[in-house]
């Protein structure tokens, strides 16, 4: 079974369902709208900040603020791409056509990842430029140290979040279960763990917190995070590998 055949097939699948379009458009619109809003508010607030906060002011990172919400749409995209197969019963038709389950899963993930990368990267660049436009005199330039890395990193972050969701969905199968676990996790639990002193040291190893480090250009004073921007993205990538590996192991073993 040629993998290129399966990739073409998965491309046909992904472009022929409405959920692809609405989840990805939602990711773009929500990220951009919220990023612009928060950038504009931050520009107004700047004068009221104390010296410490001014030196920590990170215009690049602020212009990605919308991703906290936009990533939820990416999660929905990643979950639905995989669990649609199960909720519709299509999985049996799919696996009868492609009995090599590894080829099936990784072709699907590759196609969805490619799409998420294009959309995520475009969103990241757009969020940066629109956000900087809102920030006016406090803006950063793409040529400044670390800024291009942060913007490219924002696109990678969105992509990895989608991939992680695909892996989790492959393990859980049901879309309701997948969304019911991932959405509150990334929207609430990760934030709580990251903001409570007792759990902060653990929380910062969670995929979203580790991964979002790459979007920071200014390191806050007194920051003791034990990894750098690429280290953080690496930790997130390990989570992704674990999720996809788990999904593959279960898919291979289970009855369809």
């Amino acid at each position: 079974m040629a993998a290129t055949q399966v990739i073409r097939s998965e491309w046909t699948k992904i472009r022929s369902v409405a959920s692809t379009v609405w989840t990805l458009s939602l990711a773009v619109v929500v990220t951009l709208a919220l990023s612009m809003l928060i950038s504009a508010l931050s520009a107004n607030e700047f004068d009221k900040l104390n010296a410490q906060d001014r030196s920590d002011f990170d215009p690049t990172f602020i212009s990605f603020a919308g991703m906290t919400l936009g990533q939820l749409a990416m999660i929905v995209f990643g979950v639905l791409v995989v669990s649609n197969e199960y909720s519709s019963g299509m999985i049996r038709t799919s696996l009868a056509a492609v009995p090599q389950r590894g080829t099936f899963l990784f072709s699907k993930v590759a196609v969805a990842t490619g799409l998420a990368l294009v959309v995520g990267m475009a969103t990241s660049f757009a969020a940066f430029f629109l956000g900087q436009a809102m920030l006016g005199e406090h803006r950063a330039q793409l040529g400044d140290t670390g800024v291009l890395r942060a913007v490219v990193g924002g696109g990678l972050y969105m992509t990895l979040i989608a991939m992680f969701s695909m892996g989790v969905a492959a393990m859980l199968r049901s879309p309701m279960l997948g969304l019911g676990i991932l959405m509150p996790f990334f929207f609430l639990i990760s934030n709580i763990l990251g903001n409570v002193d007792a759990t902060r040291k653990v929380g910062r190893f969670l995929p979203d917190q580790a991964g979002s480090r790459i979007m920071q250009v200014v390191t806050p004073v007194g920051d003791d995070t034990p990894y750098g921007p690429w280290g953080g993205l690496g930790i997130m990538a390990l989570w992704v590998i674990a999720a996809l590996g788990g999904g593959y192991a279960l898919l291979k073993r289970r009855d369809a």
Partner: peptide, 13 residues
């Protein structure tokens, strides 16, 4: 094989 006529993603043509 025809196993289950419902084994189709309903949103796809």
């Amino acid at each position: 094989a025809l196993l289950d006529a419902k084994a189709v993603h309903g949103g796809r043509s």
